[in-house]
């Protein structure tokens, strides 16, 4: 992160450098927001409320994991189709398990295959046909929305199995539901993958300089396709969990996670240009976003005021993170 150029500017104090890290900023903001929420409406920071916020943050965070990978891979990487994948996965899972615990495993397999396939199409379009990711995934979103209408017309909306609902909403270990442990596990896996494995280093390599990575023997296209597939798989997992959270799937449940997943990544310190950043920050970003929304729903203002405050706060928070460099001659 910190540039080590020959002509060093006066070294910033290590304390200041630490404080300016996106992760630290996000964590500080999370604590501040929790205190603000508690001050505005007592009981906001109660254990039960925090648990509920954590569950929603986990849902968003799992989607954002895939989004994070696609963005890290650079070349304007972005995945707008996640909203469609989440909704589709929720309805597939609901129908495969249809309220029975024995159907959970087949449902997971089916959803992961579906998400992976959609990601594969995205990845093939982006690499082989060289369609810009924004355009490719935007087109895919349109296809998925159409597919949802067809699916919804032919089959019932499906039911979550009791086991799945328990996994998402009931305490499992140390008072925390399984989904939060799943999120923690994903966080650890992502951190390990990005920092300790060849694959992880290849992601940063293609994200910061694709040409150089190619010259160094990185299979650029295969890596990029895999990133889109992972994004599809993560969105599919989030869709299953969402089904467990709400009990049954309803129209376009996933869409509300599409752009927030990108914002969580940006708040976590990964610039949209890719090549640097990581998932730990994104997890904090997802928490931050969810707590902010939580505060706005507890405060008694109209929907209009809530949206205005939310939009303005997002802009304000963005000022803390990765602003572009000023033009210099």
């Amino acid at each position: 992160m910190t540039a080590t150029t020959q002509a060093r500017p006066p070294a910033p104090s290590p304390v200041l450098a630490f404080l300016k890290q996106p992760l630290v900023v996000a964590l500080a903001l999370i604590v501040a927001l929790l205190l603000l929420g508690e001050a505005l409406s007592p009981g906001f920071a109660s254990a039960q409320q925090i648990l509920r916020l954590l569950i929603v943050a986990a849902l968003l965070g799992i989607v954002a994991a895939g989004q994070n990978l696609v963005i890290l891979g650079g070349r304007e990487g972005i995945d707008l189709s996640v909203g469609g994948v989440i909704s589709l996965s929720a309805i597939i899972a609901g129908n495969v398990m249809n309220g029975a615990d024995s159907g959970i495993l087949p449902a997971i397999v089916a959803c992961i295959i579906a998400g992976g396939l959609i990601g594969l199409f995205n990845g093939l379009g982006v690499t082989l046909l060289r369609i810009p990711p924004l355009v490719m995934t935007l087109g895919m979103l349109g296809v998925l929305q159409g597919l949802l209408v067809v699916v919804r017309n032919g089959i019932p909306s499906g039911l979550a199995a009791p086991g799945l609902s328990q996994f998402v909403t009931r305490p499992f270990l140390l008072g925390l539901p399984g989904i939060i442990w799943l999120w923690v596990a994903i966080g650890l896996l992502m951190a390990f993958m990005l920092t300790r494995t060849v694959y992880g280093h290849r992601i940063y390599a293609i994200g910061s300089n694709e040409q150089a990575a190619y010259m160094a023997g990185v299979p650029v296209k295969a890596v990029r396709i895999s990133l889109f597939m992972l994004s599809g798989v993560f969105a599919a997992i989030a869709g299953i969990c969402l089904l467990g959270y709400s009990g049954s799937s309803f129209a376009n449940v996933g869409e509300q996670y599409m752009l927030p997943s990108i914002i969580a990544v940006v708040f976590g310190g990964t610039p949209l240009a890719g090549g640097k950043g990581g998932y730990t920050g994104t997890m904090a970003g997802a928490l931050l976003l969810v707590i902010l929304q939580g505060i706005l729903t507890t405060v008694h203002i109209d929907e209009s005021g809530r949206q205005m405050v939310f939009g303005a706060t997002l802009l304000l928070l963005m000022l803390f993170y990765g602003r572009g460099r000023a033009m210099r001659g």
Binding site: I78, V266, E303, F310, L315, G322
Partner: peptide
Amino acid sequence: ALRLQAIVATFATSIFFTGLALY
């Protein structure tokens, strides 16, 4: 002027404008 990333910044303003419209 503030040099925020266009995709996320205009998404944020879209939320703000929608709030205004609802008002």
